[in-house]
């Protein structure tokens, strides 16, 4: 079966894309040194960040944030409230920038769009039967095209982990490719690997390569619904895959760790790992995002602590 893949991304891929040839391609992905990865992030995590840099890093973390609500109990009101906070995270401090995007369920996209209109904040929607991805390809593509029609700027799709783990690489590849197609020029595609379900760093690295080859603009760790969600080692493995892919094809792909990043300290550690692995070209909201909900308040509290010299309390920040 002939498949259209963006020509620049095809450099790594076998000429004829079949399940067997994709399996061969993934076998060629180098394996990961587990101990090395964990030691590397442990040593990067202890790096001391001085006050001025910290202040910059915190503001950058805000600009990189995808403020997220993905709950069964979400309502238009809740989404409007969160979106207002996304545009103006700290009403008492205009120097705090807007976040990158709000991330919501498809049904909430119109309300989010209305609430962020006129600002720089983008609307991201999860799609493809989030969070499990257990649905047939056709319906997933239909769902995505509907969300794109509604006007979402970014699509966070999940891969079918069951298919990936049982070796149906072609199906996973094909799904990402088709979803990418309906996203067209309008929507950015982030592909969620759900690393907590993949079992090993090697699998994470293979899934990253597969997703990037199939057309992902971003690769993302997790849905936030599975533990463990984002961790530093898994993020490093994915960043290294992004680097390999960039060196082989010249195509830059973004990264989004999501789930479980709750403190400013965590966020800064991710930024250190990012800078040390991919360098400053990736240190912008165009190429790196945090998927988070509670992280924002902690960052705001840290920003205010740096500004006032007084330790802060959650009592004086809006709950979202």
């Amino acid at each position: 079966m002939a498949l259209a893949v963006a020509p620049d991304r095809a450099a790594l891929l076998p000429e004829r894309i079949t399940n067997a040839s994709l399996a061969g391609f993934l076998r060629s992905v180098p394996s990961t040194d587990e101990v090395g990865v964990e030691e590397r992030v442990a040593s990067l995590s202890t790096r001391s960040i001085k006050k001025d840099s910290k202040s910059e890093a915190l503001r950058l973390a805000v600009r990189m944030m995808d403020l997220t609500t993905l709950e069964g109990k979400d309502t238009p009101g809740k989404v409007a409230q969160m979106s207002a906070k996304a545009v103006r995270p700290d009403p008492t401090d205009p120097s705090v920038p807007s976040v990158a995007a709000v991330c919501v369920y498809p049904a909430m996209v119109p309300y989010a769009l209305e609430a962020v209109a006129g600002s720089s904040v983008k609307v991201a929607s999860v799609a493809t039967y989030f969070p499990s991805g257990q649905l047939d390809t056709k319906l997933k593509v239909t769902e995505t095209s509907r969300v794109v029609e509604m006007g979402a700027h970014e699509i966070d799709m999940v891969i079918d982990r069951g298919a990936f783990l049982s070796g149906e690489y072609f199906r996973v590849f094909d799904e990402i490719r088709r979803v990418r197609e309906v996203c067209g020029d309008q929507a950015h595609l982030k592909v969620i690997l759900e690393t907590g379900e993949l079992g090993s760093y090697d699998q994470v690295r293979r899934a990253s390569m597969l997703a990037m080859a199939a057309g992902a603009d971003f690769i993302k760790t997790s849905t936030g619904k599975v533990q463990p969600a984002a961790t530093l080692p898994v993020t490093l493995v994915m960043l290294e895959a992004i680097r390999d892919f960039y060196l082989a094809t010249g195509v830059q792909v973004g990264m989004k760790p999501a789930g479980g990043i709750r403190t400013s300290k965590d966020a800064i550690r991710y930024l250190v790992v990012l800078n040390e692995t991919l360098g400053s070209a990736w240190m912008t909201p165009d190429w790196f995002r945090f998927g988070a909900s509670t992280l924002l308040n902690d960052v705001l509290m840290q920003i205010r602590w740096l500004k006032t010299g007084r330790y802060q309390s959650a009592d004086y920040f809006t709950k979202d």
């Binding site: 010299g309 007084r310 959650a314 004086y316």
Partner: peptide, 8 residues
């Protein structure tokens, strides 16, 4: 002083 200034 740190106790006095602590907002929490």
């Amino acid at each position: 002083p740190w106790l006095a200034d602590h907002m929490d």
